[in-house]
Simulated scan of single mutants.
Amino acid sequence: MPRPHRTPRFTPAELEAARDRLVPDVIADGLAVLFCGINPGLLSAATGHHFARPGNRFWPVLHLAGFTPRQLRPDEQDELLSYGLGITNVAARATARADELSAEEFRDGGRILAEKVERLRPRWLAVAGVTAYRTAFGERGARIGPQERMIGATRIWALPNPSGLNAHWTVRSMADEYRRLRLAAGVAEPSA
């Protein structure tokens, strides 16, 4: 029987040393959905895994929405590619909090993200954080859901931020929105 995975513990100094570190994208050409976080947190930078903080709801929501046959752990992020999924970020620089990023970093990140999407051609870009999407792409009125803007042939969907700090979205309501994206993207539920 496999042992449960535990998130490694880091001292405050070790986490601070991860500041500004980059977390490699989990990407490939022609994905069904490229998920896009705001930027890596310090724990993600320290581990090298996206959405690594235990309170982050990305991994449980992804499973509940039917994108994965079981709840993956952050250290299993590369398995997403086998489901036609990937992960990147609007801003690459790791910070303790997203509000440490400037509007200019978001706009630069949006430009770099658009170039990445043009090169990789996913069917959908799913930005996990509508405020980050608004700032990165200058879409002040954007709401959760599919967007009119496209990048080449890639459609865009603004999703709720899965951070545990985003209290007005429950795991269930987030999973419902992620499921709407899965259905729109034509991604079948994988079997276990």
Score class of each variant (00 low, 15 high):
residue 1 M to E: 06
residue 2 P to H: 14
residue 3 R to L: 10
residue 3 R to E: 11
residue 5 H to S: 08
residue 11 T to V: 03
residue 12 P to M: 00
residue 14 E to R: 02
residue 18 A to E: 02
residue 28 A to L: 03
residue 28 A to Q: 13
residue 37 G to L: 06
residue 43 L to W: 12
residue 45 A to T: 01
residue 48 G to A: 00
residue 58 F to E: 07
residue 61 V to N: 04
residue 65 A to W: 06
residue 67 F to M: 04
residue 70 R to F: 07
residue 70 R to S: 04
residue 71 Q to D: 00
residue 72 L to K: 04
residue 75 D to C: 14
residue 77 Q to L: 00
residue 84 G to I: 00
residue 86 G to A: 08
residue 86 G to H: 13
residue 88 T to D: 03
residue 94 A to C: 09
residue 97 R to A: 12
residue 98 A to F: 06
residue 99 D to C: 07
residue 100 E to V: 07
residue 104 E to P: 05
residue 108 D to N: 14
residue 113 L to W: 03
residue 116 K to R: 15
residue 118 E to W: 10
residue 120 L to K: 13
residue 121 R to P: 01
residue 122 P to N: 11
residue 123 R to N: 05
residue 124 W to R: 10
residue 125 L to Y: 13
residue 129 G to R: 15
residue 134 R to C: 09
residue 136 A to D: 02
residue 140 R to L: 08
residue 142 A to D: 01
residue 142 A to P: 01
residue 145 G to H: 05
residue 146 P to E: 15
residue 155 R to P: 05
residue 158 A to H: 01
residue 160 P to V: 09
residue 161 N to A: 03
residue 161 N to W: 08
residue 163 S to V: 00
residue 164 G to A: 14
residue 164 G to H: 10
residue 165 L to E: 15
residue 169 W to D: 02
residue 169 W to H: 14
residue 170 T to E: 12
residue 170 T to F: 07
residue 173 S to H: 11
residue 174 M to D: 11
residue 179 R to Y: 05
residue 181 L to P: 08
residue 186 G to E: 09
